[in-house]
Design a protein around this nucleic acid. Structure first.
Length: 582
DNA sequence: GCCGTTTTCGGCCCGACTGTTTTCAGTCG
């Protein structure tokens, strides 16, 4: 069965083919836009088609709705297959090269019959491109550079790595007195799991822009300067990440911050909204749309001190960066109905921590002390069960020993508690790795899959749902299968799992290794819809691992979760009902 | 191809930088 992701990919490809063919740019945009809309749907596609609701979704009209139906029902689309025949497959690879868009790709193909990256590389090396319309020596060089970068996979970086690189640049910039404001913008500020490049914004006096640019391009982390202007420069960092710096005036700063935080789609929507107010919005401010030729008239005296002011002028609640993806946030903000998102400081403890009893690096006591240092009120220890041999799973005797040790430690604490849990393996048949007699002894039970990763989606889903039915299970561990960092994990039908969690009253864990793209935050959104509680767990294997809750918090914010949706923001007393505290 | 609180037709976000030009097109975000 074809899924949303595949349909979105096909719609996106159609948009790209139409671009290369030089079709109406707005038509191309309609396809790209529809691809985004489809991939971010939280509702089930089957039910949308059955109830004929597709057309009611913004961005999908008669034509696209029919095409999506055809794709869903037959797994194919004639229009797409015909289009695909008109264009060699390799052109899509070529489009991924920096500096090459649909127009130049078309020229390369029409004039030199170039349809693969290898052909392009040879042609550029032999200087065969220079003669073409709009091509010169510099573009040849740029293309060769672009091919190199592509092979280095330069445009995909994990959030923590990109954040670290960005903070290093930011900390240098803010030391400069000429820098009045400085913020990391772009997808990093929106806490995307995968980051394309780093955007940094600075507010200063216009006359200082140049010297700030110099500080930036001379930063020790900079490997290469790819573009340098008075207000914008681009570099490649030694970490392999592209980094942009924009310098604007202090007055422009709030507008620029909204603009460069994006997303692109959010900005487009904001500008459309501004038009309804008779305003034009860009990165420098508002201007009127009355078409006056007099430039003095065009300059409006609308000043905004900060981002909130800008949103307010458009009749909107402040929208936190994590929500700025044009997936309904603007409409919610217009009704003053955005959720109050969870923050890092709201976390009062976590439940998925390993110790030296299984595959952790720190003792129970060390983990507990580290949790106390973080200001938490509790920490749940959940070591592996016996089937997890690779992770040194506990024996039944170990369990008893561990429970006794925790009891002893707890006597020494005031206002802090270690809670006794387990991370029990869900076996291939969906049963649990501990028998009822053992399970009874824990305050809570996390059930997770750690084996047979080659299973199909329906198999993994069945296995998970069966485990959720078990009365001893408190929460589902790393449901998106992200545990195995170096592997892909397993496929799962998240909506069905959430439905089951809702039916059986179970909690879903999100934890936070930023590996499975947007699966987790979409899961959060659907869980919220279904009133399924979420627990943000770090799956910590040492005391440093506890900090990983911050990524979980990021995912939860992107999934629109507020404090009431996340159980580990509650004091211990209030979550007793979710556990079986003894 | 989508969309509509001036619209069922005529709009569709907008500016910086680059490299190619000699006033601008392409690309990017």
């Amino acid at each position: 069965m074809i899924d949303k992701k595949e349909i979105a990919q096909i719609l996106d490809e159609i948009g790209t083919i139409l671009e290369i063919q030089g079709d109406n740019p707005f038509k191309c945009r309609a396809y790209h836009n529809a691809a985004r809309v489809v991939s971010s749907l939280t509702k089930d596609l089957a039910s949308l088609i059955e109830s004929d609701e597709l057309k009611t979704i913004k961005g999908i009209g008669d034509a696209l709705s029919e095409k999506i139906k055809e794709l869903y029902k037959t797994g194919r689309l004639k229009y797409y297959e015909d289009l695909k025949k008109s264009i060699p497959k390799g052109l899509f690879d070529i489009l991924r090269i920096q500096g090459l868009g649909p127009k130049r790709v078309k020229i390369l193909y029409d004039k030199l019959k170039i349809s693969t990256i290898d052909q392009l590389k040879i042609a550029a090396e032999e200087h065969k491109l220079s003669g073409l319309d709009g091509f010169g020596e510099k573009i040849e060089d740029k293309i060769l550079e672009g091919i190199k970068s592509l092979y280095k996979n330069i445009d995909r970086h994990l959030y923590p790595k990109a954040l670290d690189s960005a903070n290093r640049i930011k900390s240098t910039l803010i030391k400069c007195k000429k820098v009045h404001n400085c913020e990391i913008a772009g997808s990093l500020r929106r806490r995307k799991e995968i980051i394309g490049d780093i955007d940094i914004l600075v507010g200063s006096k216009p006359s200082d822009a140049k010297s700030i640019m110099d500080i930036f391009i001379k930063h020790p982390d900079v490997e290469k300067v790819t573009a340098k202007g008075d207000t914008k420069s681009t570099v490649i960092l030694k970490s392999g990440i592209n980094c942009d710096l924009r310098v604007v005036t202090d007055k422009e700063y709030p507008y620029a911050l909204v603009y460069f935080t994006g997303s692109k789609e959010h900005n487009v929507e904001m500008r459309s909204l501004a038009k309804k107010f008779g305003l034009s919005l860009n990165e420098y401010g508002f201007s009127t749309l009355n078409g006056s030729e007099n430039k003095k008239d065009k300059k409006l005296k609308i000043t905004s001190k900060n981002e909130s002011d800008i949103y307010q002028k458009l009749g909107l609640q402040y929208i936190p960066p994590e929500l700025r993806e044009n997936t309904g946030e603007i409409e919610f903000a217009s009704r003053n109905a955005l959720p109050l998102l969870i923050n890092e400081k709201d976390i009062r403890g976590t439940f998925h921590c390993h110790t030296t009893y299984s595959d952790g690096m720190n003792s129970i006591e060390e983990m507990a002390n580290a949790a106390k240092e973080l200001g938490w009120e509790y920490i749940g220890i959940a070591d592996h069960s016996k089937a997890a041999a690779y992770a040194n799973g506990l024996s039944e005797n170990d369990v008893i020993k561990q429970i006794n040790e925790i009891e002893k430690l707890n006597k020494r604490f005031n206002n802090f508690r270690i809670i006794t849990g387990t991370e029990v393996d869900i076996l291939p048949d969906g049963s649990l790795d501990w028998n009822a007699k053992i399970l009874e002894r824990f305050d809570y039970v996390i059930a997770s899959i750690h084996s047979k990763f080659s299973m199909t989606e329906s198999e993994a889903t069945r296995r998970t749902i069966k485990a959720l039915k078990n009365k001893y299970v408190t929460m589902l561990g790393h449901p998106t299968g992200r545990l195995l960092l170096e592997r892909d994990g397993y496929p799962i039908n998240m909506n069905q799992v959430i439905d089951a969690a809702s039916e059986y009253g179970k909690i879903i864990e999100i934890n936070s290794h930023p590996q499975r793209l947007d699966l987790d935050w979409r899961m959060c959104k659907y869980a919220k819809e279904k009133s399924v509680k979420i627990c943000i767990n770090p799956d910590a294997h040492n005391i440093d691992g506890l900090y990983d809750v911050q990524y979980g918090v990021g995912v939860a914010r992107k999934g629109w979760l507020s404090k009431t949706d996340v159980i580990n923001t509650l004091p211990l007393k209030s979550i007793e009902k979710y556990l079986k505290l003894k």
